[in-house]
Design a protein around this nucleic acid. Structure first.
Lengths: 179, 179
DNA sequence: CCCCATTAGTTGGTCGGCCAAGGTAAAATC
DNA sequence: GATTTTACCTTGGCCGACCAACTAATGGGG
């Protein structure tokens, strides 16, 4: 940081200050860890015929039974359009079924198919394996501490997002911090 | 976890066990934090005319001057095709210039344009702001601890990725852990 | 009762990101 | 020196994810 020392440098001099790409900021650690985490998750999930991210939706549906799509959207905290398209694909691959809500003609109810219930066990195991590989090398105290710190960071980012986007916190998962 | 208790439940009974979507696993905390982090980063970067992820590439280029594209790819640890397409867009928007490497006719050298150097300061400031918002609410000790733990997790995931993907660690950023 | 604001979902577009396959050039091997 | 192998990059395809704009239905206030 302290970018005041740099001020529109020439291309050659842009290399002068290393600008801390590698070390420092926790932000970059988060980005890198997240990417690696996603890759490992993708590998574990591929064998189950799911794309990374879908398992999150499925888990919510397995948990909650038939739900209004809007409820699901609020629960996972994703963009409505994202959920719509994911559900279209999950429906096409037979994991999910959608039908109109009799009580509200614009809403639709989403639920898991019987065929998909066999996947539940495998996804659970994959998540366990993912967690295991992620936390390999951390003792119990460190794991707890990491969870606690991530919770606080999530809270901070949550309020930051809320401040900018005027709406309430996107991560509607009522996690450790409700904001 | 302990998925043995579940075994192909009916759709109705899939809701029986909450399956720990919300709480527990650090994995989900990572996913959520990462998403929020990306959103905040996107907001900060949008004003600069950059899309999230591009700033990472640019920072590397500002740091290293003219580089072989393959070097850049190794440095950021992304898929070659991803970098190719990002560079095409960055070139079209005038932030980056590419020319063939005289020493190797299949390689190309990438460098930052003069016009883009003005962005450097702003991106640095945006990163600082991002870091500030991310770590808001954590004291110095917690920040250090979080960095340390994320480093360890990165190491674990790194080796996990390497094990499955046979190649060496993708995150070639010689970070805290070299794997 | 009608109009209007709100809510529910969808579509289109763009980007980051991955994989798989391909084409060209350099390097290694024979 | 010719052939195989490897490296460098590109293209196409797909998915997650965002935003913006749109349709359609609900519900509240004049």
């Amino acid at each position: 940081m302290t970018p005041e020392t740099a001020q529109t440098r020439t291309p050659a001099q842009c290399a002068a200050v290393p600008s801390a790409v590698l070390d420092g900021p926790v932000s970059h650690a988060i980005s890198r860890v997240s990417r690696l985490h996603r890759i490992v998750a993708g590998r574990l999930l591929r064998d189950l015929g799911l794309h990374p991210g879908q398992e999150f939706l499925m888990m919510h549906l397995w948990d909650s039974g038939a739900v209004r799509q809007s409820e699901l959207i609020k629960a996972v905290g994703l963009d409505p359009s994202t959920v719509t398209k994911m559900l279209q694909r999950l429906e096409q691959s037979g994991h999910v079924r959608r039908r109109p809500d009799p009580a509200d003609r614009r809403a639709s109810l989403v639920e898991v198919t019987e065929a998909s219930c066999g996947l539940f066990t495998e996804v659970s195991r994959a998540w366990g394996e993912l967690e295991r590989q992620t936390l390999d090398g951390l003792d119990d105290a460190e794991r707890a501490e990491l969870g606690r710190l991530l919770g606080k960071v999530e809270g901070s980012l949550c309020t930051a997002v809320a401040r900018g986007g005027d709406a309430e916190c996107t991560t509607a998962l009522k996690g450790p911090i409700d904001c």
